[in-house]
């Protein structure tokens, strides 16, 4: 009896570990390695594009298309005769992967993995599913830098898609931006789509920027509204860049004064 007790005292740790290992291996083999795969998925989770993000992008695109249609309809009424010649445009855009973000916390920028050799130039307009993202501000042979519309230095002429009231959109370094309207009492309500204005020289008109989140109309002059940007910029991995000729031709076809 004493012999058995001593043996147990001496080997119990190894024995328990061995049993645990064997048991674990057995369970693992019975479960087809699901546990390990789950752990692996959990670890690599941040590197994966999950379904929720994809759904958000698709939703954003649906909203964009719907708003674009509404916007085109309303613009069509006033611009029909002016636009009939160049109504069919040969869109030249390339899909570009995002290489990195801005190198400090004050600027809102993207670095793209294509540059001048692919036809990107300073001023090229950058899109993503959902709407406008920004504008190329610097370009090298193989990369380009985009100033996002969420940057506080970026100011864009925009209009309310439904009522055509004009304003200026300024980024807030977040997913929201602020529109300052020109009119004292603009016809605008929460949920209205904000699109780029035809007066903007930097962006082609009618592109979805975001939708109104809250209103601050009671301010005496310069009524303001908070706009939720349409594109989930922080989640993007690919963007679409309109090559410069295209932007230019878009601008040419649109009259300065509708």
């Amino acid at each position: 009896m004493l012999f058995l007790f001593r043996w147990w005292e001496r080997y119990r740790l190894g024995l328990i570990l061995a049993i645990l290992c064997l048991g674990g291996a057995w369970i693992f083999s019975r479960s087809q390695g699901v546990g390990l795969l789950e752990v692996f998925r959990f670890i690599s989770g941040p590197a994966q594009t999950d379904a929720a993000k994809q759904k958000q992008l698709v939703d954003a695109q649906t909203v964009q298309l719907r708003q674009q249609m509404a916007d085109l309809k309303s613009r069509n009424q006033t611009l029909q005769e002016l636009l009939d010649q160049d109504s069919v445009q040969n869109k030249q855009a390339i899909a570009v992967q995002i290489l990195g973000r801005s190198a400090d916390n004050w600027w809102q920028q993207l670095t793209l993995s294509k540059g001048r050799t692919d036809g990107i130039d300073v001023g090229s307009v950058v899109f993503a599913p959902g709407g406008l993202v920004g504008r190329v501000t610097a370009v090298s042979q193989g990369t380009s830098r985009v100033l996002l519309i969420s940057d506080p230095t970026s100011r864009i002429g925009v209009i309310v898609s439904r009522s055509r009231h004009m304003g200026i959109l300024q980024g807030q370094s977040s997913t929201d931006a602020i529109v300052t309207f020109f009119d004292k009492d603009p016809d605008v309500k929460v949920g209205d789509a904000i699109v780029t204005s035809s007066l903007s020289r930097l962006f082609p008109p009618g592109l979805l920027v975001g939708k109104i989140k809250t209103l601050k109309l009671e301010q005496n002059y310069n009524p303001q509204a908070t706009v939720e940007l349409a594109v989930p910029i922080s989640k993007l991995e690919w963007v679409t860049v309109y090559l410069n000729d295209q932007t230019a031709s878009l601008q040419k076809t649109v009259p300065a004064n509708p």
Binding site: P46, A47, L99, G100, R101, S102, A103, D104
Partner: peptide, 11 residues
């Protein structure tokens, strides 16, 4: 370091 600055890895 400069590369890491623009990379913004999720972790």
């Amino acid at each position: 370091c400069a590369l890491m600055l623009i990379l913004r890895l999720p972790v």
